[in-house]
Amino acid sequence: MFLHDLNPTVKALTIIGAVFLLAFVFDPVTPLLYIVWTVLVTFLFGTFKKRYYLYYFIPFTLFAFGMFWTTIVFSDTASATSETVSFLGMEFPTEDIWTAAALGLRVLAFASLSLLFLFTTNMVHFILSLIQQLKLPPKIAYGVLAGYRFLPMLKTEFQQIRAAHRIRGVNRPDSWKEKLLQYQRFAIPLLAGAIRKAERTAIAMESKGFTGAKARTFYRPMRVQWKDWLFPVMMFGMLGVTIAVLLYFGYFSWYDGQL
């Protein structure tokens, strides 16, 4: 429950900070340990449908594996050292595998961090917090919120347009070309409709007295309390500890122009 009550801006900045730091790490062990830590924190301090988490996490794993594999295959062989590992009858330099694993796991670490945010944050609260903590201009923030509202609408809209097409007797596409044409026929009405509606929404907002002025009260006041700082302390602290321990055992490596 703790993650859901956190101030969204503090949470977002912490995660961006952690991502930034991890981007400089070039060994596979640090991200691996940090993934375990992040997932642990997410499960311990968040409430959500665990099934969905897996559902989101699996494609990332595949993506990370893809990254791992391509880095090995397309890597710059010139810099390879003599040590190699053989796999499926092919020889790969160990150094490459090491880097590839670092890159792949890094992607996964980013993914687990962003999932932590996604699964425990209410979007509207996040934007409201950006206005209140980071002084994002309300005009942009509410404009974006209004646009964001179109997201569920777009899905139904898309289904409706597809249904409308079907009902109106547009044939199922048989060839690639027809399929492309079909998409164009979707795109224009979908966009035109969305723009029209957006315009009307903006008009309705203004006639409810919205001017974009900075001075406004909030139905959902967002505050930063002392316990909000616990999260960055926890996340950065763990990163520091991991790095320190790995340094000690000699597994750690920074980005220093390798690759």
Partner: peptide
């Protein structure tokens, strides 16, 4: 198309906030 928030209460509050 008159709404800019996600939930009912936020929408009603929107005008009041303004």
């Amino acid at each position: 198309t008159q709404f800019c928030m996600i939930t009912v209460e936020d929408e009603v509050a929107f005008g009041l906030e303004n």
